[in-house]
Amino acid sequence: MITLCLADNSPVVHLGIQTYFKNSATIKVTDVVSNFDDLLAKIETGSINCVVLDAELSGLNSILKIKKIMQEHSKLHVIFYSNVSDTLYAPPAIKCGVKAYVSKNITLAELENTIIRVNNGEYVFSSEVRKAIEILNKTKKSDRLFKKLSTREIEVLRYFSDGKKNKEVAKILGLDEKTISTYKLRLLQKLSVTNLLDLINKAKQLEII
């Protein structure tokens, strides 16, 4: 039996997935959580072997937290699912060691199949993710600027695109404001722009955010 924890902000999603798997002989949804701290607590109990994780889960302000989970719980299967641009989350999520990355647009039957395949040792990435990565890999080298950006730089860039100021980003990520200023300078240099507006516009043009 696959013991599953669903980590998602939406009670509607909780209900839908719990209802779907209610009578499953293969997958048991033992826990549902709506924030990252509660997810960590469930993982520490050792009672679950698979997590379906919303990329926008409350409290998950850095994808590096997923990397830490994977390092500390190597036998845990993590399935990332999201409506956010695949070019933003897929590459760093895969690098962190998630076993699957799928779109929230898939059916529950497809999600079930993904969970089972991951439990059997497979890595599963949706057609949307594969297509996004393929497109990025085919772009001109000069345009593949996302590969020059670290996971942290992408995170900082994302918050800038949401209208956050240096101080706000620093507070969210638990970093010094000067550190955020350094990241901003690096981003400007790496994307060859001179101001924040052009930085965000170029990032959107390249589908980094």
Results as ranks from 00 to 15, higher is better:
S24C: 04
A25R: 15
T26N: 13
T26A: 14
T26P: 07
I27N: 02
K28W: 09
K28G: 05
V29D: 03
T30I: 08
D31W: 05
D31T: 13
V33P: 11
S34K: 12
F36H: 10
F36K: 08
D37H: 09
D37E: 14
D37R: 09
D38W: 06
L40H: 05
L40A: 03
L40F: 00
A41V: 05
K42S: 12
I43K: 02
E44D: 15
E44R: 15
E44T: 10
E44P: 00
T45H: 00
S47F: 09
I48F: 01
N49V: 00
C50W: 09
V51Q: 09
V51L: 01
V51T: 06
V52K: 04
D54G: 02
A55H: 06
A55R: 04
A55V: 07
E56M: 13
L57E: 05
S58A: 13
S58R: 11
S58H: 10
G59I: 05
N61H: 09
N61L: 09
S62C: 05
I63K: 05
I63M: 12
L64M: 10
K65G: 13
K65T: 03
I66A: 04
K67G: 08
I69M: 07
M70E: 13
Q71W: 06
H73T: 06
H73L: 04
H77W: 08
H77L: 01
V78K: 01
I79Q: 03
I79V: 12
I79P: 08
F80Q: 15
Y81E: 06
Y81V: 04
S82D: 06
N83Q: 12
V84M: 15
S85D: 12
D86E: 14
T87N: 15
L88E: 05
L88G: 01
Y89N: 11
Y89G: 07
Y89H: 13
A90I: 02
A90L: 07
A90G: 03
P91E: 03
P92W: 00
P92G: 00
A93E: 04
K95W: 12
K95E: 15
C96P: 00
G97K: 02
K99Y: 06
K99F: 06
K99W: 01
K99L: 07
A100W: 02
Y101T: 10
Y101L: 09
V102E: 04
I106S: 00
T107V: 03
A109T: 11
A109M: 05
L111D: 02
E112L: 08
E112D: 10
N113K: 12
N113A: 14
I115H: 11
I115W: 09
I116D: 09
R117W: 05
V118C: 07
N119Q: 14
N119K: 15
G121C: 11
E122S: 13
F125T: 01
F125A: 06
S126V: 00
S127V: 12
V129R: 03
R130A: 13
R130P: 02
K131M: 11
K131N: 12
K131A: 11
I133D: 02
I133C: 11
I133Y: 04
I135P: 01
I135N: 12
L136R: 15
N137I: 11
T139M: 14
K140N: 13
K140P: 03
D143F: 11
R144S: 02
L145N: 03
F146P: 04
K147N: 14
L149I: 05
S150C: 01
T151C: 08
R152E: 15
R152C: 07
E153D: 10
